[in-house]
């Protein structure tokens, strides 16, 4: 038996890779506008070099780290994950990245560190969505994970996809990828990672706490108030076949992550 397990897709037809063209032109990245096509049209303006990330909070080894020092190329791994958006569509994307757990371990969290808080860049002159007078998001976009979720081996910091650098609209140069949670948890263009003792409030939770929770685990049994989460549309689809498939608990990663939530009422902590 080989040391590496080949991934056998459950459904070879639907679980094939989403074309790069689709994954890089159909994005939610409200810093560049609320339309799905806005990010790919406007994100060219974003300067991603140089880039550094502040690691602070409950850590012994914090500070500002240049992207090149944070991500050592020899450690890059390719991970093919399903991406399930809270809007009930999904894709299959090959990411390049390193486990977030490595980065956090290097920062040496103190005993008080219980959660990780992430922040996206604020630069309205390059991110037109942040200039909108009607935006309800209080920039910067923020996200959070429980420390054990952040340390989980499936959680990665992505720097590329499809074997190349991340396009700006997909969160260049550094983004989070948490495959068992709705896509909005996987925060883009990260400039700050803070280890904190209190549960952070994420941007979507701040706008609509009845619709978006802190955990945002993919869960077919807990509906979004405005639509069902029992099924999803695997993209790309067509008018003749909307590719509607059943959504799986924890986006199909239950074997790996369900133990993180033992004893929790996932209806209340959604």
């Amino acid at each position: 038996r080989a040391k590496w397990d080949a991934v056998v897709p459950q459904d070879p037809e639907l679980d094939k890779l989403t074309p790069y063209q689709d994954a890089s032109t159909y994005n939610n990245f409200y810093e560049f506008g609320t339309g799905k096509g806005d990010p790919s049209k406007r994100a060219d303006s974003l300067t991603t070099q140089p880039w550094s990330v502040v690691i602070d909070g409950e850590v012994d080894n914090g500070g500002r780290v240049a992207l090149e020092d944070l991500i050592t190329p020899s450690r890059l791994e390719e991970r093919i994950y399903r991406l399930r958006c809270v809007e009930a569509w999904s894709m299959v994307i090959p990411w390049l990245g390193i486990p977030l757990g490595d980065v956090i371990a290097r920062a040496k969290p103190t005993a008080k560190a219980k959660y990780v808080r992430f922040e996206t860049l604020v630069r309205p002159q390059e991110m037109p969505g942040q200039d909108s007078a009607f935006a309800l998001i209080d920039w910067p976009y923020t996200e959070g994970l429980r420390l054990d979720e952040a340390m989980h081996p499936l959680t990665i910091l992505g720097v590329g996809m499809y074997g190349r650098e991340l396009p700006n609209q997909n969160g260049a140069p550094l983004r989070l990828v948490v495959p068992w949670k709705y896509g909005f948890k996987s925060i883009k263009s990260i400039v700050r990672i803070s280890l904190v003792s209190e549960q952070p409030v994420n941007s979507w939770q701040a706008i609509a706490p009845d619709e978006y929770g802190f955990y945002a685990n993919v869960n077919p049994q807990v509906d979004h108030p405005r639509w069902s989460q029992a099924t999803e549309r695997r993209l790309p689809n067509s008018l003749f076949n909307p590719h509607i498939i059943d959504t799986r608990m924890f986006n199909g990663y239950a074997d790996q992550v369900a133990s993180l939530y033992t004893g929790m009422d996932l209806r209340k902590q959604f």
Partner: peptide, 15 residues
């Protein structure tokens, strides 16, 4: 646009 495949990966939602 849908016929030209220019409506993105989810043409139904586009319409």
């Amino acid at each position: 646009q849908v016929a030209l495949n220019a409506a993105g990966p989810e043409p139904g939602r586009y319409l």
